[in-house]
């Protein structure tokens, strides 16, 4: 076979496989635009596309005897507030501890290894005490409780990413600052941190993605519109109104879309962070 033909064939095969692979996701997008009569139909693209599912999701809706489902808006706000505050908080804390680890070997190899290994502990195993903590602090069922516990997931990740970012800043720059009379803390905030802005942005985005998709923590720490996030809303939706495929898929698209957009923006850092490469 000639080289040009082989290129065309391989490229077409690759894109065909990937399209087939993504078909469940395409199906979800399709259903979210289908009017009520077409939800169960087995074709992917709606014949009479409608935005009604999204409108109903925003306002809440009544469906006969199945009762009504609540509007997505309060949950959206909860998710957004908790994820963005958490992403800023953990990125900053992660950068700070990453600096002391990378430049001053704070805690030695042992601390670094331990922090890295926290990324791998199953959160469900430590949730029992954390629920007790949150309840006794009086932040149960609020975004503050979530912000308090989310670092369990995101802090190891941001620390690890920021270690990589700070390693790329040449040591000479902050040494020069130290010689000029800065303290180590000043050198970090004034010299090192500004130079890691790409890494900071990436790790904040990744922290946002992970806290946005987190399910177990909000499931156990919230129970009403005061603190419940989108993922828990989606799970309850599937349990209570599982027959309403249209709004359910629309909720799925609304929840998944920001994460996918962010993930595509930072995909290089994401793969590095997830595979423990630095």
């Amino acid at each position: 076979m000639r080289k040009g033909t082989l290129t065309v064939v391989m490229t077409i095969i690759s894109f065909a496989i990937v399209t087939l692979y993504l078909s469940p996701f395409i199906w979800m997008i399709g259903v979210s635009f289908k009017p009520i009569g077409e939800w169960g139909a087995s074709y992917f693209f709606p014949q009479n596309p409608t935005l009604r599912n999204y409108m109903e999701l925003a306002t809440g809706a009544v469906y006969g005897v199945r009762g009504h489902f609540p509007s997505i808006i309060p949950y959206l706000i909860n998710s957004f507030v908790s994820s963005s505050i958490n992403s800023i908080l953990t990125t900053l804390l992660g950068a700070m501890i990453a600096y002391t680890i990378q430049r001053y070997r704070f805690g030695g190899t042992r601390l670094a290894t331990w922090i890295l290994s926290l990324r791998m502990i199953p959160p469900v195993a430590v949730m029992l005490p954390l629920v007790v903590i949150v309840k006794s602090l009086g932040v149960y069922d609020s975004v503050w409780g979530l912000i308090l516990i989310y670092p369990l997931i995101t802090l190891p990740l941001t620390t690890w990413l920021m270690i990589g970012a700070i390693k790329n800043v040449p040591r000479e720059t902050d040494e020069a600052a130290l010689v000029d009379g800065c303290t180590e803390v000043e050198a970090f905030f004034k010299i090192v941190l500004p130079q890691t802005s790409a890494g900071l942005a990436a790790s904040a985005t990744i922290a946002f993605i992970f806290s946005w998709s987190e399910f177990l923590i909000p499931l156990l720490l919230t129970q009403s519109t005061k603190g419940m996030t989108l993922t828990v809303y989606a799970a309850y939706f599937a349990q209570e109104y599982g027959v309403l495929w249209g709004p359910m898929s629309a909720a799925g698209v609304v929840i998944a879309l920001p994460v996918i957009v962010f993930a595509i923006i930072v995909h290089k850092y994401l793969v590095k962070g997830l595979t423990l490469a630095a």
Binding site: A235, A238, G252, V259
Partner: peptide, 12 residues
């Protein structure tokens, strides 16, 4: 597929 929240994958 990797980045869609797992719950959404479940209900999809």
């Amino acid at each position: 597929p990797m980045m869609i929240p797992s719950v959404i994958i479940g209900l999809n």
